[in-house]
Design a protein around this nucleic acid. Structure first.
Lengths: 246, 246
DNA sequence: TAAAGCATGTGGTCCAACCACATCAAGTAC
DNA sequence: GTACTTGATGTGGTTGGACCACATGCTTTA
C-alpha cells in the first residue's frame, strides 16, 4: 500500500534526488552561474518533495561552493548559483586535517608542489602579476601581522592565477585555507616577526622578478624554498627523512 | 557542570553552530574516525537547537566525507565519523566542472602534474607498487571496457599512494572522479578499443618498471605522456597554444 | 529449543507554523 | 509635488511534532 505522496526514488534519499535534479540543470545549461534557483517552497512543490529535503540539498550545495542563499528581497536575495570551488575544497581539507587523516606536512608539501608549478608556468606578461606587484608594494607600508598575512595570501593567490589553471588555483587556495589557523599559530613561535616579514618581502620580490624575467625554473625553486622556509622556521618539521627527493 | 546550550549566535546560522561544535570535537580529539556522533535528537537537545538544524549540519559533513549516516540499530547504524576526502573533493570538482567554471583541460593538466610528481617521488620498494603490479596482471585477462577502466583507476590510485602523500592521493582521486563521466564518453570515440587497451597496458608496465628501477624522472615523463595521450586520442584538445611549456 | 513477535532506538521524511529580513508600492503628511 | 511612513509581499531561517522504514535484541510462544 502506498501513501499519496510516496515516490520511487528507492535507493536514493530525497535530498539526493533534489541534488541530482539541480546538477542536471547545471550540466544541461538551464542553470548557470548568476542564475537563481526557484524559491524553496516552489522547488519543493515542483519536485513533489518537502521543503525540508530541498533545504538539505541546498545546504550541501552551499558547502560545496555552488550556491549562495540570501534572505529578503531583491537581487541579493534568493538562492543564486555561484562558483567558489576553493571554499568547498578548503572546508573539506580543514576538517580532514582536524581528523588527523591528512597530515599538515602533506598539505604543506602539496602546496609547494602546486605553487612551484604555477611559478614555473606563469608567463612574464600574465595579468595577475601586476596585481601581485601592487600587493607587494602594499606590504612595505608597515602593517600589523594579520594585515601582512592577509596581503601575503592574496599575493600567493595572484601568483597561482598567473599560471592560468583554474583547478590549480582553487586547490592552492584551499590548501592555504585549510592550514590558515595552523599557520596563524605558528607566527606566535617566531622569534622576530619584523625580521621574518622583511625576509618574506625580499623573497617575494625575487620570485616576482624571476617570473618577469621568464626564468620559470628559478622562480619555482624560490617559491619552494620560500614556503618550506617559513614553515620550518615556525617549527614544522618534515614528515620523512628524505625531503630533498625531487 | 555546564550546559552545552549556546545562548547567542548572532551572525551564524544554526546549522553552522552545530558544524562548529562538531569540528571542535574533532580538533579536540573528543571525536575521532570510527567514533559516533550523539543521536540527532540527543545532539539537538544538548545544543539547544532543533533536530532540523542538526540534520542540515550532518548533511554538510556527509557531503564533505566526514561522516556516514546509517539507519537501524547496531554497529552500522548511527552517524559515524569517517574520513573520505576524495568524495568531497570529487563532488565539488564535478559540480564546478558542470558549471563550466573549471575547464576539463585544467582538470586533466592538474592530474598530469600530480601524477607525474607522484611517479617521480614513489620509492622503488613502496608497498603500493605490489598492488599496482597485481592490478596490471589482472588487466591482461581480457576484461570488458568498464572492468578495464575500473582496474585502470585502481592502478593509478595505487601509484599515487606509493608517493606517500595523503593530500596528493586524495586530490588525484577526486580529479579522476570529477571527469569520470567525461572520460567514459570519450572511450566511445576511440576507433579501436582493443588496440588502445593494449597500448595502455604496455605504458603501465613501462611506468611501473621505471619506478622499480628508481628512475623517477623517466617515470614522470611516461605518466605525463600516458595521461595526455589518452585524452588526446579521445578527442580532447589542449587549452592553450603552448602545451609544451614546462 | 527454535521460531515468531514485540520493544527500542536509529535516521528519513513531511507538515504547518512562525520569525527575520529586504524590497517595493501605496498611502499620508507637509 | 515631495518626502516620509506604512503595509504587503516574498525570500530564506527555525522550530516542534508527527509518522515512517529499518536493524537489532529481547521476550514470548509453539
Amino acid at each position: 500500500m502506498w501513501s499519496n505522496h510516496i515516490k520511487y526514488h528507492g535507493l536514493m534519499r530525497t535530498h539526493q534526488l533534489v541534488l541530482r535534479w539541480i546538477e542536471d540543470q547545471l550540466s544541461g545549461g538551464q542553470l548557470a552561474v548568476g542564475g537563481r534557483l526557484p524559491a524553496e517552497r516552489t522547488l519543493a512543490e515542483q519536485l513533489g518533495v518537502s521543503r525540508t529535503s530541498v533545504r538539505e540539498a541546498i545546504r550541501v550545495l552551499e558547502a560545496l561552493g555552488v550556491v549562495r542563499a540570501g534572505v529578503g528581497s531583491g537581487p541579493e536575495a534568493g538562492t543564486v548559483v555561484i562558483s567558489d570551488p576553493t571554499a568547498a575544497l578548503g572546508s573539506a581539507l580543514r576538517l580532514h586535517v582536524a581528523t588527523q587523516h591528512l597530515p599538515v606536512e602533506d598539505v604543506v608539501e602539496t602546496r609547494v608542489l602546486l605553487e612551484s608549478w604555477a611559478a614555473a608556468r606563469a608567463l612574464p606578461d600574465a595579468p595577475g602579476l601586476d596585481l601581485a606587484g601592487a600587493l607587494l608594494d602594499d606590504m612595505d607600508e608597515g602593517h600589523a601581522v594579520d594585515d601582512f598575512l592577509a596581503l601575503d595570501v592574496r599575493f600567493h593567490l595572484a601568483l597561482a592565477d598567473a599560471a592560468g589553471n583554474a583547478v590549480v588555483s582553487a586547490m592552492m587556495g584551499s590548501l592555504r585555507e585549510a592550514i590558515q589557523g595552523y599557520a596563524g599559530q605558528l607566527t606566535a613561535n617566531l622569534p622576530d616577526w619584523d625580521a621574518t616579514a622583511s625576509r618574506l618581502r625580499a623573497e617575494h620580490r625575487e620570485i616576482l622578478a624571476a617570473i618577469r624575467k621568464d626564468d620559470g625554473g628559478r622562480a619555482a625553486e624560490l617559491v619552494a624554498a620560500h614556503i618550506r622556509g617559513y614553515y620550518k622556521e615556525a617549527g614544522l618539521g618534515p614528515k620523512d627523512s628524505d625531503p630533498a627527493r625531487p
